[in-house]
Design a protein around this nucleic acid. Structure first.
Lengths: 182, 182
DNA sequence: ACTTGCATGTAAGTGGTTACATGATTGG
DNA sequence: CCAATCATGTAACCACTTACATGCAAGT
């Protein structure tokens, strides 16, 4: 999923500026799929306009910089549909935490405990993000389907982790004698 | 998780050639975290050797090309542990399929059905890969912990998908009249 | 006075993939 | 005879990130 496709997917339902797109894919429920930086979004939008897949209009605002609002064209819609019709790339999951976990036994216990707590926190935050916001009025049924799938998966992930994290902590190296020689 | 760290993590428990590493991270239970190509593995190993974090020895074989077997050094072990002790990057999940699913309503039904079946198949394959192979004798407890976590998550993912995929299919655009006028 | 938010964009750098180059052996 | 497996490596290319450049307004 390149940034180009990400932009088309967001513009499919509503117009937006580069800035909007960035926010949607870092905060909104698009964070799911991709996260893109300004450095990739702005050039992608410019190229999409060159190719005639999106059109732009500059919106002046009082007290704020002008926004360049992009909207998808008919050509853009069919290009996007065509792209989705091609064979899909494989889903992928990259977990620095799980690599860390595999080596719990060579790491100090307090570090493992700390990282576990951080991970639990992030799991809970992710879940909360999916629980908040989305409702029938601002989401299509397909959107809801995706959100529910995500929710189901994140829920067990969080639950499993919560009930098994202590095992991971006990595997960790016992504290390397802190200077608590009281 | 860059390829450099991937190599160190694999070499931590046993020596291996670049070729071995490639196989382990595409087939083995390392596929979990990263997937790397030869074009990144070989240069990474060379650089690790330059830095003194791994050592190599050339193993001649009859009827097969020579293998360059790498093993981790003490410096490598501590460098790896140091890397794991730094703040972890965020886990991430990229799903071309979920993007596809969000747009089920604009896509032809038979395509959606096909992609759903493919996705189900891949889910089941992924699960089978985790169920096979790993046992106490070739895995550390931490390895088993990670595998069990993955198993728990993949299991509900597959189960949820299997019971809800038909909803997604019914959202898809009705067939654009095939020439089956029998 | 300073930071934060809004807003757009570029240039340099990074971390990878794809394709290529090479070559021997085994199995269909 | 051709394809696949084993095995190492390089070069060209790509997508994306980071950091930079700019600037104004509102809140602290």
């Amino acid at each position: 999923m390149n940034v180009r496709t990400l932009c088309l997917s967001i513009l499919y339902d509503s117009e937006a500026s580069g800035y909007d797109i960035r926010r949607m894919c870092t905060e909104g429920n698009f964070a799911y799929f991709v996260e893109a930086s300004y450095g990739s979004i702005y050039p992608a939008l410019a190229k999409l306009e060159d190719d005639g897949l999106v059109a732009s209009r500059t919106e002046l605002q009082e007290g704020k910089p002008a926004r360049k609002v992009y909207s998808i064209t008919d050509a853009g819609r069919s290009a996007f549909a065509a792209e989705l019709s091609e064979p899909l790339g494989e889903d992928m999951f990259r977990s620095p935490f799980l690599l860390f976990a595999r080596f719990a036994h060579i790491l100090p216990r307090d570090l493992v405990e700390q990282r576990c707590n951080e991970f639990l926190q992030r799991s809970q935050d992710g879940l909360k993000q999916l629980d908040g916001a989305p409702d029938e009025h601002n989401c299509t049924p397909a959107d809801m389907w995706v959100i529910n799938y995500g929710r189901a998966v994140l829920q067990v992930a969080e639950q499993h982790f919560r009930t098994h994290m202590h095992e991971l902590i006990t595997m960790a190296r016992a504290e390397p004698q802190k200077d608590a020689a009281e």
